[in-house]
Amino acid sequence: MTSQADQSTTFASLGHQLGVRRIFTVLQEVREEGGHPLDRPVRQAAAVAVLSNPWSGTGVYQDLGERTRDVAPVLAKLLTDRLLVALGGKDAIQTFGKAALVGTDGELEHAAALIHTPYFGNLVREMLGGTAIICFTDGRSEPGPDLKVPLWHKTTAGLRDYYQTIDLHLPDAPHPDEICVIAAASDGPRPFPRIGDRQTDPDVDTTILKGLLS
């Protein structure tokens, strides 16, 4: 989980110039579930950048485009680099997800700007070798929240075995004038997936409720 490449160091200083205060990377390796060992541990990872809100002190009519173009691609690079190191490269990565939490002085739209445009999403998708839309969560928070970031398959979003979340804690962030931007990924499906898939589902609709109450 180290960033040894010179390029990463360069992007880290660039990140700092753009307001990044901290980056943390969480790798979770689950070896057993329901009391049974997994044949292969499932590894989930998330990388979190804590940065100054680029639009701190601006109003709801502020154009967000220019700063989004400056900041979001660098965040995408910083975060995906760490996911790739944590999980062993893009071929090992099977799912992805993203999130943004804006501090209490910011707008939800500020969080959205940094993850919901091509300047972030397209780069994350390309660098992790995916083709699907990236699932997400976003919101506003005091520092120190717990949050769950959804993940689904990077090329086939409908693969139910891969629906999962990574559970994160963000110590001391986001401050009121900050934003936390998160990219996440995993190298496998849920432990012991066995709830079928769209191909195996029977037809289900509300008629199933009829006759339940007498």
Binding site: R21, R22, F24, T25, V26, L27, Q28, E29, E32, P37
Partner: peptide, 23 residues
Amino acid sequence: RIRKVTTIVEEILGEGGREVDPT
């Protein structure tokens, strides 16, 4: 038996409004 191993790496680039060098 180990059920789960969690690894967390924190990189502190700035504090108090100033750069932390080296990180």
